[in-house]
């Protein structure tokens, strides 16, 4: 392991962390309202809006059924349109966010469905409007469920960033393929794997810590 390689490893780690943080953030921004929408619009639920429910469910299912590696390629024109390039770490954040958003939408929806309907009825009988029910009943009560789901998402995203790296996104995946696979550098390959394991463990640990917190 030359000093340059160590340096490249450091850069790659930072790039991976950057991709994970930003794509989790954007995926959450998109996925949370979608999940709440799915929950509220489901027939028999609070808002009963079947067409919106079907539309959201359709989008979520479509995106989730496309293998991520194909989504990466499919989204190249869109990414280019959005940020001007389809190569690099920033560009990788676009498909990562879009790929993870439906995942988050489903897990938010699932977490909300775990809440006993009686709590929502208590809110209604208190005179809450829909917004108050979402912010004061649904989100606090599903907090730990959502955090647990997010932990899963981030772990999955760590894997996806490696894939994104393969198509020029930088990060640990890129490094492992360029040096480890193409140049038969087994040491680097092993170090990359160890770093990824540490990342997954750390995510799990932070997730569990956050889920236990009272809000």
């Amino acid at each position: 392991m030359s000093p340059e390689l160590w340096f490249a490893l450091g850069i790659s780690i930072l790039q991976t962390i950057e991709m994970i943080i930003f794509s989790t953030f954007f995926a959450f921004i998109i996925g949370l309202p979608m999940g709440i929408g799915l929950f509220l619009c489901r027939p028999g639920s609070l808002s009963h809006c079947p067409w919106l429910y079907r539309l959201l469910a359709f989008i979520v299912n479509i995106v989730r059924s496309i293998p991520f590696i194909i989504l990466l390629v499919l989204l190249i024109p869109f990414t280019r349109l959005l940020i001007g390039t389809s190569i690099g770490t920033t560009a990788a954040i676009v498909p990562l966010s879009i790929g993870a958003a439906p995942f988050i939408a489903r897990l938010v929806d699932n977490a909300l469905q775990e809440i006993p309907f009686g709590l929502i009825e208590a809110g209604i009988s208190m005179g809450m409007n829909r917004w108050q029910i979402v912010t004061r009943v649904l989100l606090p009560e599903s907090y730990s469920g959502i955090v647990n789901g997010l932990t899963l998402t981030v772990v999955a995203l760590i894997g996806y960033t490696a894939m994104a790296g393969a198509v020029g996104g930088g990060g640990l995946g890129d490094l492992a393929i360029q040096y480890g696979y193409n140049m038969f550098n087994t040491t680097l390959m092993l170090i990359t794997v160890v770093v990824l394991i540490v990342m997954v463990q750390a995510t799990q640990w932070i997730g569990e810590l956050l889920a236990k917190r009272r809000v």
Partner: peptide, 25 residues
């Protein structure tokens, strides 16, 4: 109206068999 109904509900308390308290509060 929806708004008037919410105000009317402040005048009607309700308790349930399953208590329905928020577990996180």
């Amino acid at each position: 109206s929806a708004h008037e109904l919410r105000i009317a509900r402040h005048n009607i308390g309700m308790i349930f068999q399953q208590f329905n308290l928020l577990s996180t509060k």
